[in-house]
């Protein structure tokens, strides 16, 4: 019934949650028991005397004002104390930048490594995220860490956590942000510190990651989903192979040049069996950007 406890504060927050549950169960049981007992004991019977009028008693009223007040003050103080801990990052926290935009998370590590919809972090080290948004309000939420913070356009907000267990955890956008709000999800990968060092230092071709970003920005995957019934053909399985195009007898090799022409003059070579609906990117993509995209598609094609 609980999500995993994977950060230093998760267990503390769950303990407070259990206090509130215990308090609520006792209070509910008391109220329900009294109502049932009175309902049975004082149910209306034939020919009974009129109801008894209780004397008003201010001491009784004072009791059920003061006692609940004290009990909730405990919850308030406990919660406030813990909140300060959850809010204020330790001085030695490592800083990672996160930018939300419809509908993805861009992450940038201190050494410049980037990722999309994933966040790799080391365990046992405090991590401070500086959040912002390029469009509407989003919210960065990792249930296993029990932390959440809005990413607000026009300002920086921050949050921090320290992962305790290596593993993969849900990352959700918690603030409604439009069409694909429920697909603005990803994962947080907590790695042992040594593995994180290896991961973050791993030579990551900057061309490829820049291309991946463009791939998201230009919304290529809206049509080139990779599904069999997609509007556009799957790019990664076809790259490097010979493909059929409308109106030509010979197959065409899907290489960088083909990709460039498809982007700038999509009507010239339409993939066979697909509608000619691809818009041109002339004027929107420079040659350098097309090279980045090609590098990404090539890298993904090699992976598959």
């Amino acid at each position: 019934m609980l999500p995993e406890q994977a950060s230093t504060v998760a267990a503390d927050i769950d303990n407070l949650y259990f206090y509130l549950i215990a308090f609520s169960v006792v209070a509910t049981a008391l109220i329900v028991a009294l109502i049932i007992a009175f309902a049975i004991r004082y149910r209306r019977r034939e020919g009974a005397e009129p109801a008894h009028r209780d004397r008003e008693n201010w001491k009784l009223e004072a009791t059920w004002i003061v006692v609940p007040f004290i009990l909730i003050i405990i919850a308030f103080a406990w919660g406030a104390n813990l909140f300060v801990e959850v809010s204020v990052a330790p001085d030695d926290a490592e800083e990672i930048h996160v930018v939300g935009k419809q509908w993805m998370w861009h992450v940038r590590h201190p050494n410049g490594r980037r990722e999309i919809n994933e966040l790799h972090v080391p365990t046992d080290r405090p991590i401070r995220l500086t959040l912002s948004s390029e469009d509407v309000v989003h919210s960065f939420y990792v249930p296993a860490f029990r932390v959440k913070q809005d990413a607000v356009p026009g300002r920086f907000t921050s949050m921090w956590f320290e992962a305790t267990e290596p593993g993969e955890y849900h990352l959700f956008c918690a603030e409604y942000c439009g069409t694909d709000h429920s697909r603005m999800i990803g994962r947080v990968v907590a790695l042992a510190p040594s593995e994180y060092e290896r991961w973050v230092e791993a030579a990551d071709d900057p061309l490829v990651s820049a291309g991946e970003e463009l791939f998201h920005d230009m919304r290529c995957a809206d049509c080139h989903t990779g599904e069999p019934d997609a509007t556009g053909p799957d790019l990664f399985s076809r790259y490097g192979t010979a493909v059929a195009v409308e109106g030509e007898d010979e197959l065409v090799r899907f290489d960088r040049e083909h990709l460039r022409r498809a982007l700038l003059d999509p009507g010239a070579r339409v993939a066979e069996g697909y509608p000619a609906v691809m818009p041109t990117f002339r004027g929107r993509l420079s040659d350098r950007e097309i090279l980045k995209l090609a590098a990404f598609v090539e890298a993904r094609a090699e992976d598959e």
Partner: peptide, 13 residues
């Protein structure tokens, strides 16, 4: 009360 408890609210908001 759960939602008013600020540290718990961060998780359930």
């Amino acid at each position: 009360l759960f939602t008013a408890t600020i540290a718990v609210n961060v998780h359930i908001h």
